[in-house]
Design a protein around this nucleic acid. Structure first.
Ligand SMILES: [Mn+2]
Ligand SMILES: [Mn+2]
Ligand SMILES: [Zn+2]
Ligand SMILES: [Zn+2]
Lengths: 136, 136
DNA sequence: TCCTACGATAGACAGAGTCCAAGTCAAGAA
DNA sequence: TTCTTGACTTGGACTCTGTCTATCGTAGGA
């Protein structure tokens, strides 16, 4: 994730300990943390980081296209650092685990013109639901 | 929607003015109201109906399978009386308008086994996003 | 008409997120 | 290295969405 820090520096970001630790917490595959989870993990490394700063930093990362927001349930949004490879999500109805998945085909192609109501449709988000091995 | 009221009566529902007006507000096509919108429209007909009753009634309708909950954004859930015909949603990124759509094909079939991580996948929800004619 | 269990109500409470005024500090200037 | 300053951080108040509870009211059967 140091490449992310490099990109951010290149964009003129002032590099603070808070921003660094938030970026570090978001490193990895299949990472889909809530803002409060990010805050908890960040606070383990930097105890006095505030919730407001976590929200600010996450919002900035989303604006820059480095992180995407995922709303899989009616609860807290999740923050996903896998922003450069398009993908969909598979969610366990039991425990809430989220995995990145890459379905075949283009879901946009399955929506006939007659079903577009004159909209300019630009994106299709697919959420698959089921039970993970542990919950089944 | 009087057929809905009939079904509810058949299920042993005590028929109150509040429940009747909530059911009436949910009548129509492409209806995707938030709980507060339902409350506002219900209160126009029955001024003293409470928020708690609206939430209770919506929750009961969802349990009975007469209404589905739709979470198109990270904000308030929307309540959809079109529960008997499976469909997906097309959402305007500008104004938030939601339309019911019926894509071709089965999105489940597009998810390869290798991308299922051992899950028992049972459902796929698709949200199409774009701009409606008015917002474009 | 009367009873009573089921439903409605107001308001307290909780979770998620936003906003603000005041204090702090990263990083360029000298 | 030290100075300066505007960008960043902070705690807490506030908003929005939703849940819960104690109390009151009433639909519908006896
Ligand atoms: Mn993801
Ligand atoms: Mn719908
Ligand atoms: Zn699970
Ligand atoms: Zn629109």
């Amino acid at each position: 994730m140091s490449d992310l820090l490099e990109r951010l520096r290149g964009r003129g970001w002032r590099m603070t300990a808070q921003r660094r630790v938030v970026a570090e917490v978001l490193d990895g595959d299949h990472v889909h943390l809530t803002a409060d989870e990010v805050h908890a993990r960040a606070a383990a490394r930097l105890p006095e980081i505030s919730r407001a700063t976590v929200y600010n930093t996450l919002g900035e990362l989303v604006s820059l296209g480095e992180v995407i927001e995922v709303a899989t349930d009616g609860r807290a949004k999740r923050y996903d650092p896998n922003a450069h490879r398009p993908h969909q999500h598979l969610v366990c109805s039991g425990c809430g685990t989220v995995r990145d998945v890459h379905p075949h085909g283009d879901p946009l192609a399955d929506l006939p013109d007659a079903e577009r109501f004159g909209f300019t449709v630009s994106q299709a988000e697919v959420t698959y639901r089921g039970l993970c091995p542990a919950c089944a």
